[in-house]
Nucleic acid binder design. Structure first.
Lengths: 350, 350
DNA sequence: TTGTATGCGTTATCAT
DNA sequence: ATGATAACGCATACAA
């Protein structure tokens, strides 16, 4: 239990003042310190294995150099999300380059004790990136008005909250249009999550709009609800299978949810895409490895995180709050689950 | 940019001393404070929306109340790992209950600047949970001897490093035995990662041991190498398919890697399990949803994280360093990819 | 029961 | 060029 070496120790060992040590170690400009002294300080610090105490530095700097990445979900769902790690990778890449660390935390909306507000007001973090907000997330609005540096990864029904997002409605529309273009007229949908989330609502709207634009009826009884988990997709798909007349295609607004749906299909000996076409959303990293590989909408998850982190850090370091939202492009990825990529030859034994 | 309210502000507003505020807010025993004063302080704090500054508290307490969860991998691989989120969930569950936050960071072994040592010596974290160490991870040894509270999630070739792990060798043996029991005699293996990682080495040893115990030859040309990614599994499987005589079964020491292997099989029209049996390892949450559902070894990932965090926090809070390793049980999960669960009826159209 | 004084390890402002 | 010294916000030993 040997004590930590402090700047004072270094100063004493080197025979200079603590100030000098600080100047040398922080490369303060303007202060012309003799090269000799400089070296001695550097050497002594090295020899004593000195590392400045981050807490003390935070104290005086008024910054923690920690970014909060907060997900508006229950922990079990947050950790089951297969796209989030990619976002996180984008964030931590930028964070690392700028000397920030990353604090990850699922904070469900109702949780009083572990709120966003607490996290920020207790100064655990300098700023927040909030993923998947509710449409009417009051706490976020409150924090914004309290001048908290906060970037949304998503969108809420309130103006002027800096956001990095995709256009969920358009992307969903694109997905469903593809199905329509393939000749499907009876297309079911499974949402990615409950409609209190703006992304869910927007994707549902995209689905509806695509139908209506194509002159197809929007039939609410063809809409089923996922909750971000494969299990929910499994159950939703079973409900679809219980329908009198099957749809010929399903748009599932989350690849993670689709995973369970595909399983339900598999278990019921329904072939994809021969018997039913499946269109996903998200392009989680493993979608291309599924059997069959899943056609889906690609979300630039890494880029989403990367941009959010950059905006936040610019805000923190240069006090420039973002003036406009950052909307990233999505891309439709045609693989095999809608049957349009290539007709798969009949199985051949090798 | 209104200034934060401090304990001093609360004291002034309530007409008491800062000490009293501190006593009330921290529920200090023994100090009998009049109920009246108590309430007034509480009310004022509430009214002023006072939140104690975590940094200042850390400063004086000598603790950051942050746990470091460090993965010994490149960021891209760390974030692609499908089992890690479960471990993390276990850790953060315990952390949250004890007032700790979680700092996640991939720290590849060679990285000089962002080392484990820096993280700890700069006091960014109070203690470390290190996932997937190399067999001979010198930095961990150094940190241990420097009395850093550190729990391994994995194992290294050095005694007395507290560890929470599974018995990788035995588990792999169990997996391969299952294949052998099914009558397979030519069984290939794809490792989960490079052999510098102890888990990879141990799983390979289990494979070899199962073969030898069954009187089967251990043939090095049947061992292929994954690197934690589906892509690596894809390529390894293609190499296997290029073999003159195919093995009838493959043991893949990581479900994540297996994902890519299954894709390679699918693309080559090779049926699982009819043409080749596939045994996985890890039981990542989506293994049961694959087509076909993957037989595998279940790792209690959540529990692994939960136990590691508990040991670490006990160490931190009560100064009790763990006296013995914590080895958790694995379980073999028989699903369909080895063909032994149930014979799947021939496809029926619905 | 409450107030006073000090320390935690830095950084930064001022003299020298 | 360098050395005191204040300040950051909180906790706590000690005094009153």
């Amino acid at each position: 239990m040997n004590k930590r070496t402090t700047a004072k120790d270094v100063a004493e060992a080197a025979g200079v003042s603590r100030t000098t040590v600080s100047f040398v170690l922080n490369n303060v400009e303007g202060m012309r310190i003799s090269e000799e002294t400089r070296q001695k300080v550097l050497d002594t610090a090295e020899a004593l294995n000195y590392h400045p105490d981050a807490t003390a530095r935070s104290m005086v700097k008024g910054k923690t150099f920690i970014l909060g990445f907060v997900v508006r979900q229950e922990p079990d769902k947050a950790y089951a999300d297969l796209l989030l790690p990619e976002v996180m990778r984008g964030i931590s890449e930028v964070a690392g380059e700028h000397g920030y660390h990353l604090l990850f935390k699922p904070v469900p909306p109702e949780d009083e004790k572990n709120s966003l507000t607490t996290l920020f007001l207790e100064r655990q973090v300098d700023g927040l990136i909030v993923s998947g907000p509710l449409s009417n997330d009051q706490e976020i609005v409150d924090l914004m008005t309290a001048n908290a540096p906060i970037i949304l990864q998503g969108r809420i029904d309130y103006p002027n909250i800096p956001s990095v997002d995709i256009n969920n409605r358009k992307a969903a529309e694109k997905a469903v249009n593809h199905l329509i273009g393939l000749g499907h007229t009876r297309i079911a949908m499974i949402t990615n999550a409950s409609l209190q989330y703006s992304s869910s609502k927007d994707r549902l709207n995209g689905y509806r709009r695509a139908l209506v634009n194509a002159g197809l009826p929007y039939d609410e009884s063809l809409v089923f609800y996922g909750n971000r988990t494969p299990d929910s997709g499994f159950h939703a798909m079973k409900q679809i299978l219980d329908l009198g007349i099957h749809p010929t295609a399903v748009f599932i607004a989350s690849d993670t949810v689709a995973l369970g749906s595909l399983n339900a299909l598999y278990q019921n000996f329904i072939r994809v895409p021969e018997d039913i076409a499946v269109m996903g959303f998200d392009d989680i990293p493993l979608s291309k490895h599924l059997a069959p590989p899943l056609s889906t909408i690609h979300i630039p998850a890494h880029s989403l995180g990367w941009n959010a982190a950059n905006l936040l850090i610019k805000w923190l370091d240069n006090n420039e709050s973002p003036q406009e939202d950052c909307i990233l492009d999505t891309e439709i990825i045609i693989r095999e689950s809608c049957g349009s990529y290539k007709k798969r030859e009949e199985n051949t034994r090798i």
